[in-house]
Amino acid sequence: MRAANRGDQRAYARLLGAITPVVRGIVRARGGTLGAEGCEDVVQEVLLTIHLKRQTWHEDVPLRPWLYAVTRHKVIDAFRARGQRIHLPVEDFVDVLAAPEAADPFEAQDMARVIDRLEPRAAEIVRAIGISGESAAETGARLGMSEGAVRVALHRALRSLARLRERMIE
């Protein structure tokens, strides 16, 4: 995280990759009723928050307690917000419905819906870098933007995502 806070992309990706199973474990332990997809929505929400609030971690203390505090906060938040929604576990329909194709458990729905609500160019950038795995430079070349401008737009888009999610859930 220390390297990540100085802008080391690869170290940061490794860190997020290492954190994700831990977060997923906490979310699943707390929210079995949400189903795998619902849990993954919450996991992604937590990761986005960790990303946007990462400068509130002080480098002189261990990372783990901070990580747990953020995760706990967002998980409680997410379940409180979803408590109002009616959730029908698909298991109840197993006898009625034809067995659906097993969905990739890491595919979450909410984030895709929120990305659709971004303005087109911001959504394009998030999809290009996230889903198609382009680098900021490649996206910039394709869209006729400088690499720096793509990074700024990406950062703004991620902040809007967090805002939009909150509004959508409320």
Binding site: L47, Q55, T56, G130, R151
Partner: peptide
């Protein structure tokens, strides 16, 4: 959206951020 895709997008945005101070 897959979580791995989200991580890729987040990591690309790894620029140092201004703290509260």
């Amino acid at each position: 959206m897959k979580t791995d895709a989200l991580i890729a997008a987040l990591a690309t945005d790894a620029r140092p951020q201004a703290g509260l101070g």
